[in-house]
């Protein structure tokens, strides 16, 4: 794993982006690097568009990633992947859960959910990897483990060995939820990752 990383996590409030960021913080801690994680709580957590910024380096200053400087964009939802694509570096990697969650303007019919998001991202030159995290989370035993499924896959892509991945996740997942999350992590780590 590189030791200078900007990871932007984007999703919909309630999808568990905060826990995901804490797993990455735990990973940085394990690697002996400095790390800052910036979160937004409150109103935006109620089904709104949310981002969590994770920065890992020898010394991290701003807790917030600058647009165009993210090495990874971890998107928990397709539209949110598209919305925050301007954060990615040209050489960055977009890892996206293929779930679609309709925002209110789409639900009430004043806007349309964009079509062919993955194809559009590819056409713009982004390197996109796709995970079907919802199905795996269900298999693990709870749809609330989508976040940990994605993190399992991401840590595999980053080259983190499985034992380390388990250890850093176990350090932050609440104890009573660990069993189902361990399964989710395993399924994520072993899952097939599609490229566009």
């Amino acid at each position: 794993m590189e030791n200078n990383l900007n990871i932007l996590i984007a999703g919909v409030g309630g999808q568990g982006t905060l826990l995901a960021s804490r797993i990455l913080g735990s990973l940085a801690s394990e690697m002996g690097l400095d790390c800052k994680v910036s979160e937004i709580h409150g109103m935006s957590q109620r089904g709104g568009s949310v981002t969590t910024h994770v920065r890992i380096s020898k010394e991290v200053l701003s807790p917030v990633i600058t647009e165009g400087e993210a090495d990874y964009l971890l998107a928990f939802e397709k539209l949110e992947a598209f919305r925050y694509r301007h954060y990615l570096k040209k050489s960055g990697l977009l890892i996206c859960n293929d779930q679609e969650l309709m925002p209110v303007p789409v639900i009430i019919g004043v806007a349309k959910y964009p079509e062919n998001i993955f194809e559009k991202l590819k056409a713009e030159g982004f390197n996109v990897k796709i995970i079907s995290a919802l199905a795996l989370a269900k298999e693990a035993g709870s749809i609330k483990t989508v976040n940990v499924v994605i993190l399992g896959a991401v840590m595999k892509i980053m080259g983190v060995d499985y034992k380390t991945a388990v250890r850093v996740a176990e350090a932050v997942v609440p104890k009573k939820l660990w069993e189902v999350n361990k399964k989710a992590l395993e399924l994520g780590y072993q899952c097939t990752i599609k490229s566009v």
Partner: peptide, 17 residues
Amino acid sequence: TVPNADLTLPQRPPVMC
């Protein structure tokens, strides 16, 4: 300057659960 956000996308305001 930095890359701009794509403002043509449908917004996702917070919503009652």
